[in-house]
Design a protein around this nucleic acid. Structure first.
Lengths: 222, 222
DNA sequence: TAGGCGTTTGTGGTTTACCGTAAGGTTTAG
DNA sequence: CTAAACCTTACGGTAAACCACAAACGCCTA
């Protein structure tokens, strides 16, 4: 079993629950922090002292408050950790259900497990820990299903994503064309932009571009 | 102190935390459910048996799963309880940060307290419980501030909210006009709709209606 | 009752978005 | 190498959105 586990999570009701769960699994040292910056400090310190953590369980979203923060999200934390302790096992524990976010997290950041907060979260965490111990990648059945079902939609590639972002940022069609021209992208003409937007509207079954943006946000593509 | 408390919350890591907190406050009977429907059943049963709950702590959002549900949210649960046990004390415990939602909850449903999930949630819950015991309404300092600060923005009234929702749902300007006409709303002409949208764009500093929808979603107005 | 004020509505003109079509270019398969 | 298929772009007509102005209406006050 893991010896030294760090929990980064700002909801303190969850701390006790997670700590209990980990204690039952015979984890000897559990450290809990409420801020990403603190998590990074703890990881650095432990590494310097020669007793590094072997598992991080982290939330993705951390609430703002009075404190200034350098790292404002679990994603930023994970990226900051990689160059320092790349072999650290990471379990993401979040309510995030937007497939786009989760997918890029699993693909880009190579986290070891994703557990969605919900009714079975305690059991899921235990399953995830055991899977990670065995060197496997774990995500819940529900999520696995969802990831598969959106394979087709993720044709929605980087260009489309950018396009939707620019729309949501208030650029008009011709401004987007200019932007694409500056960046030397393919399909940078006004006509192409229009065609792309049209394709997206069909794909997402949107009547108007306003609805398209709404759907994109809802699905977490932006 | 309250004798019999019901917790409706689907995240089971939070159960233990809340239960610990309540035990420390000498609550003798704590019942926990993961579904709104179960909460309603428990409340009815306790009432029939002559030992009603005197406090409900409930989340607002409950995840979907395989089970069929009649009540799908904390709001629905609260509304369902009112005719049955109107004097029941209710503390809402949620991550919901959208002011509109919280405001209407506090005003319409007359809940006794609103505690936002976050770093200080355990302390906040305790404060809320004591306040409710004293017959006071409680919501966190942070929230109180927010409610005040959005008094001006909440000119963005029901109409504007609906307007934004319809935009996000993919209705065109003239379709919105028709909709408003059916519902016999004031300012239902196409011209007025346009003027309203324009006002909203100025208010939210949006260049396009796409951005307007994005901002509205981001701020939780929709 | 008349006048002032604000809101709602109508109108016309300009801009932007929408949509089909076709020309030019590139990749792919035979 | 050629033809087909595809992508990109340009163009033109129609629809929708945008914008400014003015008329109509309701409400309040003098």
């Amino acid at each position: 079993m893991f010896q030294k586990v760090l929990i980064a999570e700002d909801q303190n009701s969850i701390h006790k629950g997670l700590e209990n769960t980990l204690k039952e699994l015979n984890v000897s040292e559990i450290v809990t922090v409420q801020y990403c910056d603190d998590a990074l400090l703890k990881i650095k310190a432990s590494l310097n002292m020669g007793s590094p953590f072997d598992l991080l369980i982290t939330d993705l979203s951390f609430k703002e408050d009075h404190r200034d923060r350098r790292l404002t999200s679990g994603e930023a934390l994970i990226k900051a950790i990689k160059p320092i302790q790349p072999e650290l096992n990471i379990i993401v524990f979040s309510v995030e259900h937007r497939i786009g976010k989760i997918k890029s997290l699993l693909e880009e950041s190579k986290v070891n497990a994703y557990v969605e907060k919900g009714r079975e979260e305690s059991k899921e965490i235990i399953k995830a820990i055991h899977a990670v111990l065995n060197g496997e990648v774990y995500y819940s059945h529900y999520l696995a299903q969802l990831l598969r079902s959106t394979d087709d939609i993720s044709q929605t590639d980087k260009y489309d994503e950018l396009l939707l972002q620019l729309l949501a940022k208030g650029l008009k069609r011709d401004q987007i064309a200019l932007y694409f021209e500056e960046k030397d992208f393919p399909a940078r003409s006004l006509s192409s932009i229009e065609k792309r937007i049209n394709k997206l509207k069909v794909l997402f079954d949107a009547n108007t571009s306003e609805q398209l943006v709404a759907i994109a946000i809802d699905r977490g593509l932006i």
